[in-house]
Lab assay of single mutants.
Amino acid sequence: ELKPWIEKTVKRVLGFSEPTVVTAALNCVGKGMDKKKAADHLKPFLDDSTLRFVDKLFEAVEEGRSSR
């Protein structure tokens, strides 16, 4: 259920769609990584945008959990 949101956010942050980043982000969430681990995992794909993306990712995960 997070996938469409992650795809949109990747496109907004990077300026283009990147399926590799979407898959990696879903893996981070699925494995229950904390922000630091997720950022380390995604840094090779996102460079300077990593922290901004990870912040948005974790906000969305929290919103998703609290709306259930």
Rank of each mutant, 00 (worst) to 15 (best):
V22P: 03
R52F: 15
K11H: 07
G15P: 09
E1T: 04
K37D: 13
V22W: 02
S17W: 06
V29E: 03
K8E: 10
F45H: 06
A60L: 12
W5M: 15
K11M: 10
R68E: 13
W5I: 15
M33V: 04
L26S: 03
D47N: 15
G64I: 15
P44A: 09
V54D: 06
V29N: 03
R52D: 15
A25E: 14
E7W: 03
D34C: 10
D55F: 00
F16I: 11
D48L: 04
V21K: 03
A25K: 00
L51P: 13
N27W: 03
L26T: 05
L26P: 00
V21N: 00
G15D: 07
D47M: 13
I6D: 01
T20G: 10
K37L: 08
P44I: 07
P44R: 10
D34K: 07
V61P: 07
K11W: 03
D34M: 01
A39H: 09
E1V: 01
V21I: 11
L2V: 00
A24I: 10
F45D: 06
A39I: 13
S17T: 12
T23P: 03
K56A: 14
V54Q: 04
F16E: 12
P19V: 02
N27I: 03
F58P: 10
K56E: 15
L57A: 08
F16D: 07
G32L: 05
V22N: 04
V54H: 09
V61K: 02
K11R: 10
V10I: 07
A25G: 00
A25C: 12
E1M: 01
F53L: 04
E62R: 10
C28L: 05
L57I: 15
G64P: 09
N27C: 09
A38Y: 05
G32Y: 06
T50N: 12
T9Y: 13
G64Q: 11
G64R: 13
T50Q: 03
A60W: 09
K56I: 11
R68F: 03
K43Q: 08
R65V: 08
G30D: 14
D47P: 09
T23G: 03
K36M: 09
P19T: 07
V13D: 00
A25V: 12
D34L: 05
V13A: 04
K35L: 00
A39Q: 12
W5F: 15
H41I: 10
T50C: 07
V61H: 03
P4Q: 15
E7K: 09
I6F: 00
S17I: 15
L42R: 03
E7V: 07
A39W: 04
R68Y: 12
R12K: 14
R68Q: 10
E59C: 05
R65G: 11
S67H: 11
S49N: 14
A60G: 12
K56V: 10
V21H: 03
P19N: 06
A38W: 11
L2Y: 08
A39R: 06
G64M: 15
A39L: 07
L14I: 04
F16M: 07
V29L: 13
T23W: 03
T50K: 03
D55Q: 03
E59A: 11
A38P: 00
T9G: 01
G32K: 11
P4N: 14
F53C: 07
D48P: 02
L26K: 07
R68A: 14
K43F: 08
W5S: 11
F45C: 07
S67P: 14
S67N: 11
K11T: 11
V21D: 01
T20H: 14
L51I: 11
R12E: 15
S49I: 12
P4C: 14
N27E: 14
E18Y: 13
K35G: 02
F16Y: 14
R12T: 14
F53I: 06
L14F: 11
S17P: 11
V29W: 01
A38I: 09
L2D: 02
V29I: 12
V10K: 02
R65Y: 10
L51M: 12
E1L: 02
K43T: 07
K3V: 03
H41F: 12
T9S: 03
M33G: 02
V10L: 14
T50P: 03
R12A: 15
K35A: 03
H41Q: 08
P4D: 15
T9I: 08
E7H: 04
S67R: 12
D48G: 12
R52A: 14
V10C: 12
R68G: 12
W5G: 07
G64L: 14
T23S: 10
K37E: 15
L51R: 10
D47T: 13
E62T: 06
H41D: 06
E7Q: 05
L26G: 03
D55N: 06
A38Q: 03
S17H: 11
R52I: 13
A24S: 02
V22S: 02
A39E: 08
V10P: 00
L42M: 12
R12N: 12
A38S: 06
G15Y: 04
R12F: 07
S66H: 11
L57F: 09
K36R: 11
D47R: 15
C28D: 02
E18I: 06
H41V: 14
E59R: 08
K3F: 02
V54A: 06
K56F: 10
D47W: 08
A38L: 03
F45A: 06
E62L: 06
A38F: 08
A39Y: 13
S49W: 10
D40E: 15
L57W: 02
G64T: 14
D55T: 04
T9D: 01
M33K: 05
E63A: 12
K36L: 06
R65E: 13
T50E: 05
G30L: 15
D48Q: 07
R65Q: 10
K56Q: 11
T20K: 12
V10S: 02
M33S: 03
E18R: 11
L14A: 00
K43D: 00
V13Y: 10
D40G: 08
E18P: 09
V13G: 01
T23H: 08
P19W: 04
C28A: 10
S49V: 09
I6V: 10
D48R: 10
D40A: 13
F45Q: 02
L2E: 01
A24E: 14
D34A: 05
K11E: 13
E62W: 02
A24R: 05
L46V: 06
P4F: 15
K43H: 11
R12V: 09
A38K: 02
G64F: 15
K11P: 00
S17Y: 12
F16H: 12
V22F: 01
G32W: 08
W5A: 13
K37C: 11
R52S: 14
L14P: 01
E1R: 02
D34P: 05
K3G: 11
V61G: 05
A24T: 09
V54N: 07
D47F: 13
R65W: 06
A39P: 00
E59W: 04
K3S: 07
V21W: 06
L42S: 03
D55Y: 02
F16N: 08
R65N: 11
R65M: 11
